[in-house]
Design a binder for these strands. Structure first.
Lengths: 135, 135
DNA sequence: CTCTACCCTGACGTGAGAGTAGGGTTGTCG
DNA sequence: CGACAACCCTACTCTCACGTCAGGGTAGAG
């Protein structure tokens, strides 16, 4: 529980850059759960988990603000038991899921286009290297 | 051959924004092949093709500068017949192809991660909607 | 000539960081 | 205790690929 590590170790473990981690604090996405007397950022294990979760979200193309919102949503759902505002939360969560689906479709298209283009490049290479080797 | 269209039509046909097309000129990626007396950009059919090709490259994550370079390379290969500097060109082309492959691998990973995350969201939704409906 | 639809430049804003400068902190060793 | 390396801090400017005004000019039909 007193397992606080400083930014360098967090960077290693999450493979995020120091700058990125600091940036996430700047925008309120992942504030370090403590600071040393001297001002060093100190992160807990769950901070690291949060950062790793964010890394997983990144391909979905959400903004940092949206990720903060979504993380808050998930925390809220996990924590709170009274079922009053739950439907609202679930509606919002549903929106994120739909956005994610759309993004996945877009990613698939991008991948196809990318593969097609790479093939095109390879064809150019084939054509021109053959010409050079078998005149 | 006198088939010059202005920026709006180009935007429609390529589905790029006016701003983007202008930006591509700003950085020297696709300068319009002519201007009207009054200063309107006039694009030819092959300009449009170039823009469409650029759109295909976009998922590969090259910078505009790299795309300009690559396009130049392809033009050069298609046009020039003397085979002196060709090996150099082909080497560079090979580098781009390798970069493309790497990027494709990255895209596939991103896609997997994205799908996994979307599933995670869906699970959250399932869990919490079930609780709400079947107490 | 006027009207509308379209276009222009120029300048500033944005998101998500990268990079740099200049300086402070921690913890270990002698 | 002092010295030292390794690590960290803030604050700032820079990047890329555009978006977003603001203010004004152009093309061509009627």
């Amino acid at each position: 529980m007193g397992e606080h590590m400083q930014i360098g170790e967090v960077a290693e473990r999450t493979r995020l850059s120091l700058r990125t981690i600091r940036h996430y604090e700047e925008v309120g996405l992942v504030p370090p759960s403590a600071r040393s007397k001297g001002g060093f950022r100190l992160y807990s294990e769950s901070d690291v988990q949060r950062l790793l979760l964010i890394r997983k979200m990144k391909p979905l193309g959400f903004t940092l603000e949206e990720m903060a919102d979504l993380l808050g949503l998930l925390d809220h759902l996990a924590t709170e038991d009274p079922d009053d505002p739950r439907t609202v939360l679930l509606d919002r969560l549903t929106m994120y899921r739909e956005a994610a689906d759309q993004r996945i479709t877009a990613l698939r298209e991008q991948l196809d286009v990318a593969v097609a283009f790479a093939d095109h490049l390879q064809q150019q290479l084939d054509v021109h290297t053959r010409r050079a080797r078998t005149p």
